[in-house]
């Protein structure tokens, strides 16, 4: 979006009808003119406001105050966990990740954190920002209160600074066999098509980027180490609900999900759903699987 002040478009001024309208015009017409007028004024106000904002930004020494968790067992000065302060110059549209990158590149090259794509696809930079699990690359600094506290994901072992051990999370993800297990057709080049309705059912669940925010937010996963956790269950949902897999495969998937540390441990606190950077309705999916499991159990009896 261009923020350059624009010349008012000449068409607005030279509308076929001049503003003082004779009463002979039908009411609809008058309304339309009033509407164009209103829109034009709103536009002007908007332009004045952004201009003002920009000036303010220039005047104030516009920096953001970050408090960043530091810990490194190998360095004596950092073996005791503490918070470091960084004052990062703010640019419009700056994310928490941008700020961290700036802090690392300009102030302290030892500041350690994971990041890669910077566009909420790789899922590397989930952190605990101002008391909530967030994906740093899609969290605007302007949406946060200062000082911005950046900590590693809770309930996972800290390796260094903002880097946590994700091994357990990945293990749980693998435990649900997160891959398609439909039968290979005779001719392996045949497309295995999915109905539109079925695609809609699993659509949201396919968006998972394995960032681990949900697992970290989950109170139950924190206590019960064997609990599969929201991400893994959601991943299982994606395949269990896929019509192209055979009934036997679905049964197998339900067996994994319906064991004691599977879906039943979910206490519907909705923490995972609230922190998911991809807006996956995790709780809803888990609940649906619970009902599926009960249904297949009843059928079995």
């Amino acid at each position: 979006m261009s923020t350059e002040p624009q010349q008012p478009e000449p068409e607005t001024e030279s509308e076929p009808e001049p503003e003082p309208e004779p009463e002979s015009r039908e009411p609809g017409h008058a309304r339309r003119t009033a509407e164009t007028e209103k829109a034009r004024r709103a536009d002007e106000r908007e332009r004045a406001r952004t201009g003002e904002q920009r000036r303010h930004a220039a005047e104030a020494e516009d920096t953001y105050h970050l408090k960043v968790f530091r810990y490194d067992p190998d360095v004596e000065a950092k073996a005791e966990p503490h918070f470091d302060d960084f004052h990062v110059p703010y640019e419009e549209g700056m994310t928490v990740l941008d700020a961290l990158i700036h802090a690392r590149d300009e102030y302290d090259s030892s500041l350690t954190f994971r990041h890669s794509c910077r566009q909420a696809i790789c899922g590397s930079d989930a952190m605990f920002v101002n008391g909530q699990q967030r994906l740093c690359c899609k969290t605007q600094l302007s949406a946060l209160e200062e000082p911005v506290r950046v900590e590693p994901l809770p309930h996972q072992q800290v390796i260094k600074d903002l880097v946590v051990d994700m091994e357990h999370f990945y293990e749980q993800m693998e435990a649900v066999e997160p891959y398609f297990q439909g039968e290979t057709p005779e001719d392996p080049t045949t497309e295995q098509r999915q109905s539109r309705e079925n695609r809609e059912t699993v659509k949201m669940s396919t968006r998972c980027i394995w960032c681990g925010a949900c697992m970290s937010s989950c109170n139950v996963a924190a206590g019960d180490n064997e609990y599969l956790g929201p991400a893994a269950i959601n991943k299982a949902y994606r395949f269990a609900m896929d019509d192209r897999e055979e009934e036997a495969v679905k049964e197998h998937r339900m067996d994994v999900l319906a064991q004691e540390h599977g879906v039943w441990r979910c206490q519907t606190q909705f923490s995972c759903t609230e922190v998911c950077p991809k807006d996956i309705p995790l709780t809803e999916h888990i609940q649906e699987l619970k009902r599926e499991a009960v249904k297949s159990n009843l059928k079995f009896w």
Binding site: A175, H252, M254, D255, V256, A258, Q259, E260, H261, G262, W264, K290, A293, V294, N297, F300
Partner: peptide
């Protein structure tokens, strides 16, 4: 994870 317990 065993496939025997279905404690639903």
């Amino acid at each position: 994870y065993s496939s025997f317990d279905r404690r639903g």
